[in-house]
Design a protein around this nucleic acid. Structure first.
Lengths: 149, 149
DNA sequence: ACCCATTAGTTGCATATGCAACTACATCTT
DNA sequence: AAGATGTAGTTGCATATGCAACTAATGGGT
């Protein structure tokens, strides 16, 4: 039991280290290809996945796990770059829909191969299929609990 | 094979989400207990683990995965708070050793229970021992490769 | 011994981030 | 239908972060 507890704390520590190391390398690869940072990718991807390519600001903030104030400015930059647009919604005059533009779709398309290549060489290559499934299952459960309750 | 590739990409995506979600919650818990952020904990812990409670700046930067410039200022804050000290090393007049102070040890001791409680309720509770071992093993390998080559 | 490339660490600058306060609108309660 | 309460999003401010340029010291090659 204490053995288990230790291996869990250890797993968390290693997860932190792996995250930091890989994200740093991925950001470097994107920058080297003169592409925007990972945060931009996340926003574009969430929008592209969403029904009609649009989401409300607060939904987007939740999905990319950013404070709302932070998302406001991130959205400013993306809008400035022409990759998204803010359009008024019919039903709630307080808020907007963020919509991905044609240029946004193109940019995500350009970022993905670079990103994917990094994930594969840094992560996938060194992880077995079984481990990947364990990671996916376990962390899906973790996220669900953390957000649900 | 494509099945495997997908589950690996998926695992990475979930890992990113889990990291963001949990770190956010842990930071909130530390702040609520009027304790310093996670980054401070990392520095203190690396120093405490190290031989003689001291490390060179660049070693510390590597271990906490921070750019050197960033570590300079993080160290400033910690030094300012009396938790670490910078002392000249005998052998290299360019650099310093960062040493953890008595107050630094005490602070890490105060932070750990709060941090640990969060890890357990957010992570350990929802992960089996087997999954934890898979995560630890796989990501240890990943980090080693990413840093080694 | 001397220069050159390298390494350690800090700083200027631009950008990114979170919190709390704010405005504007929506919704609930009575 | 009016006022209280809550929600959407933005902004001011303080802090945090990375990159590139800088200073200082080391070490290797000749």
């Amino acid at each position: 039991m204490s053995r288990d507890a230790d291996s869990k704390l250890h797993a968390w520590a290693v997860l932190l280290g792996a995250h930091a190391t890989l994200v740093e390398k991925i950001e470097a690869a994107l920058a080297a290809a003169k592409l925007p940072p990972l945060a931009w990718y996340d926003v574009l991807w969430e929008l592209e996945k969403a029904e009609g390519g649009k989401l409300r600001m607060h939904q987007l903030a939740q999905r990319v796990v950013l404070s709302r104030s932070n998302l406001t400015r991130l959205a400013d930059r993306l809008e400035n770059a022409g990759l998204i647009r803010r359009v008024d919604t019919a039903h709630d005059r307080r808020g907007y829909d963020c919509v991905i533009t044609r240029a946004g779709l193109a940019m995500r398309g350009k970022m993905w191969p670079v990103y994917k290549a990094q994930i594969e060489s840094l992560f996938s290559e060194h992880v077995t299929g079984e481990e990947a499934r364990a990671i996916g299952d376990a962390l899906t459960r973790v996220v669900k609990e953390a957000r649900g309750s």
